[in-house]
């Protein structure tokens, strides 16, 4: 199992088609893991690109870490990972919280990026999206799992529920994730957002609560296209094939 050391911490990564000339790096969202890409999206991209997926800290099979969930720290982590993997430049795609990480990368390290795909990144200033990390409870977890995760179609068993409950409790009560997210509430208003010059593709669900954030980003980023797809915040799970093909086409051209 590919677990590598990045800044003395264990990071779980998965790679496909290592020999390819260009690399696509995929960033998952909060409370999720790289499996959101692994089964359907990554293999389509791997027909043309070297694909790298990784689990964010305390997510999936990466090491638990108490602090550093702000976008500066998350992009520091991503840069360190690129250094370890000897990747000088990548195309970057991020989903939800991972989309915010991707945007922050484009602001801080434009020289390390080719093109940018942002899928369903929320506006951190929106109370509804932030509210999700304000009032955690067991009931919340059950609701969250039933509505917002890739296990929507399966009733979660006892072992899974316990496992997820432990992860959520850790993230909510022991790490700085809540405080760090609140500090990011002005992210869309930072001046750097206006000067972002990457070719950017914004993919949003037409029925998603985050669509408004997509429209906002489209206005802010001069070289961006916004494509609304059928679905809600879960489009990578609802329409994996379509998402994969659109992203592959965008990175290829």
């Amino acid at each position: 199992m590919p677990v590598i050391q990045v800044n003395q911490r264990e990071v779980h990564i998965q790679e496909l088609n290592k020999g390819a000339a260009e690399t696509v790096l995929l960033v998952h969202g909060m409370f999720s893991n790289l499996s959101v890409y692994y089964f359907n999206i990554a293999p389509v991209l791997a027909a043309h690109f070297h694909v790298v997926m990784y689990d964010l800290k305390s997510h999936g099979m990466s090491e638990r870490v108490l602090e550093g969930y702000d976008l500066n720290s998350m992009t520091d982590d991503l840069c360190a990972l690129m250094d370890v993997l000897k990747l000088k430049k990548v195309h970057l795609a991020g989903y939800s919280f991972g989309g915010l990480i991707a945007l922050k990368m484009a602001m801080r390290f434009p020289e390390k990026l080719g093109k940018l795909v942002v899928i369903e990144a929320p506006d951190p200033n929106d109370e509804k999206t932030r509210g999700i990390i304000d009032d955690y409870s067991r009931e919340f977890l059950e609701h969250y799992v039933a509505n917002f995760t890739d296990t929507t179609k399966v009733k979660m068993g006892k072992r899974q529920m316990e496992r997820n409950h432990r992860m959520y409790e850790y993230l909510f009560y022991q790490t700085s994730i809540k405080e760090d997210m609140i500090l990011e509430s002005g992210f869309f208003s930072t001046p750097e957002m206006n000067t972002l010059e990457k070719d950017t593709l914004l993919l949003y669900g037409s029925a998603s609560n985050c669509l408004q954030a997509g429209k906002q980003l489209h206005k802010l980023i001069s070289r961006s296209d916004l494509i609304p797809l059928n679905g809600d915040h879960n489009i990578p799970i609802q329409e994996p094939e379509m998402v994969a093909n659109i992203v592959a086409g965008f990175f290829k051209n």
């Binding site: 199992m1 893991n33 790289l34 692994y38 296990t151 399966v154």
Partner: peptide
């Protein structure tokens, strides 16, 4: 998923 209650990240490990 139903009988063995494996979630997607565990199926990733299994696939590896």
């Amino acid at each position: 998923t139903k009988d063995l209650e494996m979630d997607s990240i565990e199926i990733v490990s299994f696939s590896e």
